[in-house]
Write a protein that binds this DNA or RNA. Sequence first.
DNA 1: GAGGAACCGGACCGTGGTCCGGTTTCATTT
DNA 2: AAATGAAACCGGACCACGGTCCGGTTCCTC
Lengths: 216, 216
Amino acid sequence: MTEPFPPSAAVHDVSRRVDLTLCAPEEQPRLRADAARNRTRLLEVAAKLATERGAANVTMEAVACAAQVGKGTVFRRFGDRAGLMLALLDHHEQQLQAAFLTGPPPLGPDAPAAERLRAFGPAVMRHEQANRDLYLAANADLRRHFGSPAYHLRVGHVALLLRQLRADVDTALVAHTLLGSLEITLVEHLLAQREMTMERLEAGWYELVARLCVEA
Amino acid sequence: MTEPFPPSAAVHDVSRRVDLTLCAPEEQPRLRADAARNRTRLLEVAAKLATERGAANVTMEAVACAAQVGKGTVFRRFGDRAGLMLALLDHHEQQLQAAFLTGPPPLGPDAPAAERLRAFGPAVMRHEQANRDLYLAANADLRRHFGSPAYHLRVGHVALLLRQLRADVDTALVAHTLLGSLEITLVEHLLAQREMTMERLEAGWYELVARLCVEA
DNA sequence: GAGGAACCGGACCGTGGTCCGGTTTCATTT
DNA sequence: AAATGAAACCGGACCACGGTCCGGTTCCTC
């Protein structure tokens, strides 16, 4: 399993305001020409297959085959299925990250921390819901999910906001808890249940944030 | 996939005090003699294999083979791997359930709701940690996990306590959130990280409960 | 251009899950 | 009690997919 989280999963140039200093850029050693070519071809093909037959039904072999490439190549590049999905997700994830790292208020840095945190939950839920099957496929292996730079970045961001709010809590832990309530499989399950609408989930998030941020 | 949650996954006779009325007993149509025989043999063998080589390394085929039975039989009985693990877990899970449904304080019904809720988190975390690999294997398929009677029962219990506490919140939703912070993969990940001890997680739970239960 | 590292392909394996012809069990009838 | 018919069950061959491996090839450096 090489290169578990390839190119640009987390940090990209943050021009307006530096928000976080986690996740050192750390370019991986650079790809050989043919390898890079294959990589992009694989991603293109995978994206195409994902849209036309659903991310859940995209087979590693199918990707390899459609990209005129051996199966081994796919695995060497992305490690495993979850890795490929994560890479596929990378683009979307970056959009989300850009939204709360450098985007406009209320998500971005020009809003007060309290509003940013409030807006964060719905943004994540809506974003993940918009790319449901991709996120579901990528988070199939939970251990990997918690280790991913994307998750790491979210935790860091929420923890930062909590600290800015001077909330008298274990910020790191609370950040994980907050993210837990946004976990896509949970949201998915709640929406499938009766009576749980997106609006209700958002209201729940607001309430949660409010209760966790009152100063001791 | 027949019989997704077989015998006694959730409700057993609650003699002291009726706490919940979810999960109608609903005996499934009764098993044929040979089927029942095979079922118990399979569970025995699976348990043995699980203890001696770790639940993660228990193969469906190995179980079938060791029980002198066709592979198809295992799958018909338990649906899939997660189903088998869930069945294996059933016994342990019942112990936990008994502890907070009918057990002694502070978990059981003779303690005030606030204390019961406080005690609930650590109890669950410790219990799941004690049977780590089994729970991890059983929760591999998250969708199944959220649908399981065991999870359902936990949610119902927490929601009940919240209602008894007159907490002015969306009890159902908060119950899910609270359980989310106990999710084994998350706990596992946090414990593996630096600085996160069991004590810290428990403190976090107390804080969480306290904040969510103050009356509006 | 030569050497070596990185990469490629596809045969190979293990495991989860399905399928279906044959067998067993059980309720009912005689 | 014995027979009988059908539903439930059994076994293991079979398939698909994720993941590994290694001999041969390609690319970059010097």
